[in-house]
Design a binder for these strands. Sequence first.
DNA 1: GTCTATAGGGAGATAGAC
DNA 2: GTCTATCTCCCTATAGAC
Lengths: 194, 194
Amino acid sequence: MAERGTRSDRPARERVLEAALDLFAEHGVSGTSLQMIADRMGVTKAAVYHQFHTKEDIVFAVVGPALDRLVEIADAIGGEPDQERRFTATLAGIIDLIITHRRLAAIVQFDPMVARLVRGHPAHASFERIRALFTGPDPDGSALVAAAMVSGGLIVAGVDPALARLSDDELRKHLFDTAARLLRPLPGVPPATA
Amino acid sequence: MAERGTRSDRPARERVLEAALDLFAEHGVSGTSLQMIADRMGVTKAAVYHQFHTKEDIVFAVVGPALDRLVEIADAIGGEPDQERRFTATLAGIIDLIITHRRLAAIVQFDPMVARLVRGHPAHASFERIRALFTGPDPDGSALVAAAMVSGGLIVAGVDPALARLSDDELRKHLFDTAARLLRPLPGVPPATA
DNA sequence: GTCTATAGGGAGATAGAC
DNA sequence: GTCTATCTCCCTATAGAC
């Protein structure tokens, strides 16, 4: 079922998405034209339009899978009764998501065009649920600021060229420890193992 | 000297910059046209062109002052011999800069168009010097990640709508404490007073 | 300082041949 | 799946009147 004589529309679609992701990361969505995407693929605009009928469709196809994964992570919160494991699993989940998609995470969080599209997606609510988990109930100013710094800091750390020399596993470990240290200023709760 | 019969070219220029900042923050630089700026001001495109001859000029005028201030902060590092005061003054300086310019800070850090323009500006080197101060000499992975999270986290916290209800002073205090906590994992150095 | 008018080009998008 | 050709609209930018 995976290989067929006619590979149908798979390669072309994916080549569009790869080119689009590269260009979105470098120029932003508004700064990327369909002509630029076509040029990078070595085809014409019309060929791109054969795969995606609007630019918005391309944006959704690029960011959609990561948003769906974010929803899954948030939905898993309700299924875990133990507080500590719930916190740990969720934090590990979003760090994994960020590391897997690196450039994409920054686009979703910071590109104004994408942000507007995401506002209508279930992932938006999921993001709020995750943030609420991190701030805890009835958060004070300090907890709000810590959660905000983590949410932005994780994304930035995923893209930062200064961290390019770190392996995925190293980065994952440091991000987890650093985020946990910020989110659990509770005395008696030691930061996750270093 | 403050009020003259002819107010020269002050108001019109500043109205352009205000409108541009609003729109850059909402749509990104590439997503903002001169027509949008003119519409927001209630004038025509040509009136905008009378103040700034290119769109790039507007971008520079919007971000320039904040970049200049960043350079000043970095330059002050060399003039302070005491290590602790150097760290404290620099961190307080950039937090002040971020709070003063809130939306602008996010544009400078995350808009790809602005990022490309900033690459040729002295502020780029200043940013690296400040980061080096925060990581310390010969940083390990943990220190690099902490510095990256702070640099991104401070910016995000400055814009985050979830923090809108905090006063500037509250936000300043929490940002300082949280950033200091991340950047000084040294035992024996207590976080700045809460 | 602001306007009208316009040049010149690139944007997103469509039609239809191969 | 990809092409050529084309449409329409909006973009940046300029010229010149008021």
